[in-house]
Design a protein around this nucleic acid. Structure first.
Length: 342
DNA sequence: CAGGGTCA
DNA sequence: TGACCCTGG
């Protein structure tokens, strides 16, 4: 679920045009989750191919990536590596939540309650290693670079942005800010419209941007204190204090002058066992310092054979989108032959 | 979520 | 054009 910082960050709407020309480091897993949650039939069933393999994520990734490129945004996907040991508990917890949601989905279907069914289907979605492999395969065919993190993808993205190789990290989660990314983009979508679950209403969803420096300045905290805020409210690596959200966490940190042990003492709870380790994990995460970011010529034949032959996508749609992809690639990245004269 | 058709 | 609705796999 990530660190819930929403109440203390100032999220500014941004136009896709403002991202033109910029490299954006996209949290791959987070994006895939959005796709498998949203790209579904009214009864909650995802898109599948003839072998029953889920394809919602491929559809979302394919079309969105092309749209981003057409906006001259240069996407780099970042995948998680090996999860840190500290995350084990959280991984088990999430698995159980999904199992429960799957039961409720089936139950709602039996009752014929489509709205409920869809809601639980979204929560039941899980991403398998096979799906990750398919995603990487598609990215390769599309010529879109991806980086596999040593551990957390969000940490790797933060590092890449900090180094100046990308302008921002993109994710719905706030963790990359805690990992020190100077800029976070949320809602990096094209359509801008989202149906409200259940109701027949639509809300406008615009991409937005959060600057870490603003978060720190507006709340008068240091980055280390932001990490402490995260720990107090709960992260993927520890449980938060009950009833403490980001605002309270900041107040507590001010009141006790950053002495986190005093805060736990005052709240009559024990600090997490691996407190120092968790703080270090955010302040100085393990990341790959060497990585490649190169956009390559898309391979149309491979794309078509992969999406259409293997996964039953429509030839007409895929070919049309591939054409757009190749044209965009040519205008954005292709070597023109001119530069050797410069 | 995104593509694509329809209709004013 | 843009609001609306259905389908995609």
């Amino acid at each position: 679920m990530g660190v819930k910082l929403k109440d203390i960050v100032n999220e500014q709407p941004i136009d896709l045009k403002d991202l033109s020309g910029k490299v954006v480091c996209i949290d791959a897993l987070n994006t895939l989750y959005q796709f498998i949650a949203r790209i579904r039939q009214p009864d909650g069933s995802p898109l599948r191919d003839h072998k029953g393999r889920m394809t919602s994520h491929l559809s979302g990734l394919f079309y969105r990536t092309i749209n981003l490129l057409e906006e001259k945004i240069k996407p780099v996907y970042v995948f998680d590596g090996k999860p840190p040991m500290l995350k084990e508990k959280e991984i088990v917890r999430r698995k159980e939540i999904r199992k429960g949601a799957e039961e409720k989905w089936k139950e709602a279907l039996r009752r014929g309650d489509l709205e409920e069914a869809r809601k639980y289907a979204q929560a039941a979605g899980q991403i398998t290693d096979k799906m990750i492999e398919q995603t990487k395969k598609l990215l390769n065919f599309m010529g879109i670079p991806y980086i596999v993190a040593l551990e957390e993808g969000e940490a790797q993205a933060a590092y890449i942005v900090r180094k100046g190789d990308a302008w921002a990290a993109a994710s719905q989660d706030f963790d990359s800010l805690v990992f020190g990314s100077p800029i976070l983009i949320r809602n990096l979508t094209i359509s801008g419209k989202r149906k409200l679950p259940g109701r027949k209403e639509y809300i406008q969803v615009k991409p937005s941007v959060i600057h870490l420096s603003d978060v720190l300045r507006e709340n008068q905290i240091t980055r280390r204190e932001l990490v402490l805020v995260a720990v107090l409210i709960g992260t993927d690596f520890n449980k938060g204090i009950k009833g403490v959200g980001p605002k309270t966490a900041i107040k507590l940190i001010k009141k006790y002058e950053g002495d986190i042990f005093e805060i736990y003492k005052a709240k009559n709870t024990n600090p997490p066992e691996n407190l120092e380790e968790i703080i270090d994990l955010f302040m100085d995460p393990k990341v790959k310092k060497e990585y490649q970011m190169k956009w390559k010529q898309p391979k149309e034949e491979e794309i078509v054979s992969f999406l259409c032959d293997e996964h039953d996508f429509s030839y007409k749609r895929v070919k049309k989108a591939s054409k757009r992809l190749i044209e965009t690639y040519n205008s954005l990245f292709a070597v023109t032959g001119l530069e050797k004269w410069l």
